[in-house]
Computed example of a mutant assay.
Amino acid sequence: MKSAVILYIPKGTTREIITQLQSQNYDVSKVDAYITRLFGFTQSGYIEMPSSTLSKGEFLYYLVKSKAATRKFTLIPGETSYFFLRDLASAYSFDEAKLELLYKLKFPYTDGVILANTYNLPYSTNEQNLIDILYNISMQEQKRLAIKLTGSYDEKKWFKVITKASIIQKEAANIKEMPIISGVIDNRIKIGMPLQMDGSLNYGKYSHIRVTPERIQTDKTTFNTYKYLGLPKEPSGSVSIDAIKAALNPSKVPYLYFMRNDKGTHDFSTTYQAHLSNVEKRQKTLDITDKAR
């Protein structure tokens, strides 16, 4: 028999559910209600059938045994809640402003709480329930990771680690660079040098916007690590486990500077003079590329 892969089962007795399916032109009868009861109690809500074509026996079995239908959403490393919430609102046809307000009321930080990962969320839900689910999953996982990686969990201290990890996430070209970037951050903080990292300014709605001199001059938040010493007051985006590990285990390097090279990775340097030399080298490469066009 044919079936929708995502099937909505109303609340009610097994007989009432079978009657409802009959009205939707499913080839089931009152006798099938008794057969279904042999498998257990029917679920309610959206369930996911394994196929759109099933034998009747399989169909009745999966009315009881199918898992609740879910939707998959992926929060990529470095992305902000500003865009993630808008993706959720679009998929569920929720009001963006309402979803964002509920998020702000529930979550302790604007970003960094929901880890970069793929989430299986209910197929059908409401704004408050969705925010509650994300909050519970996220805070439980943050606590689990903190205990696993540091031996204890103090929310304020832990999210300082996440804040550092969020900058590492945005600045590093790859996983290999993450501990080195972490070391550079520590080196700068140790000598009272501003971090001056563009990644911290790619927060919220600015996640995909190039950081310009004007932004650096006008942004008055603590995300502006050109103006304010040390780490921002909160994370600037989502983080991966690799970025967290790098934040906790920085490489012992002498570097204070780094810049992206023509290979897409970074050249690291200890002195400002060496850094300027790397900048000049990169600029020459760009000039040659422009002339070749």
Rank of each mutant, 00 (worst) to 15 (best):
R15K: 15
Q20L: 09
N25V: 08
K30R: 10
V31L: 10
D32W: 03
L38V: 11
L38K: 15
G40R: 12
Y46A: 14
E48A: 07
S51C: 09
S51Y: 08
S51P: 08
S52I: 06
S52K: 09
E58G: 10
L60K: 05
A68N: 11
A68T: 14
A68I: 09
A69F: 04
T70R: 04
K72I: 11
T74E: 01
T80N: 00
S81F: 00
F83N: 02
F83C: 01
D87E: 15
A91K: 13
Y92N: 11
F94T: 12
D95V: 02
E96N: 09
K98H: 10
L99M: 03
P108M: 10
Y109S: 00
T110F: 11
D111H: 00
G112R: 11
G112N: 09
T118E: 08
Y123Q: 07
T125C: 06
T125P: 12
N126H: 00
E127A: 10
I131L: 06
Q140D: 14
Q140F: 05
E141C: 00
K143Y: 01
L149N: 01
G151H: 12
G151F: 11
Y153Q: 06
Y153N: 01
K156E: 14
K157E: 15
I162T: 01
K164T: 06
A165Y: 09
I168V: 13
Q169L: 13
A172R: 07
A172N: 09
A173I: 14
I180N: 06
I180G: 01
I185Y: 06
D186W: 05
I189Y: 02
I189K: 10
I189L: 04
I191S: 02
M193K: 13
G199T: 02
S200L: 04
Y206P: 00
S207Y: 12
V211N: 10
E214F: 01
R215V: 05
I216M: 05
I216P: 05
Q217W: 07
D219K: 07
T221S: 15
F223R: 04
N224S: 13
T225V: 05
T225Y: 08
K227N: 05
Y228T: 14
P232R: 08
P235I: 14
S238G: 13
S238H: 11
S238N: 11
S238C: 12
V239K: 09
V239L: 07
S240C: 13
S240D: 13
D242F: 15
K245I: 10
A247E: 01
N249C: 01
K252Y: 08
V253T: 15
V253S: 15
P254G: 06
P254A: 03
Y255Q: 03
F258H: 06
M259Q: 08
D262M: 14
K263G: 00
T265G: 00
H266N: 08
F268P: 04
T270A: 10
L276K: 14
N278G: 06
T285S: 12
D287M: 09
I288E: 12
I288C: 03
I288D: 01
R293P: 03
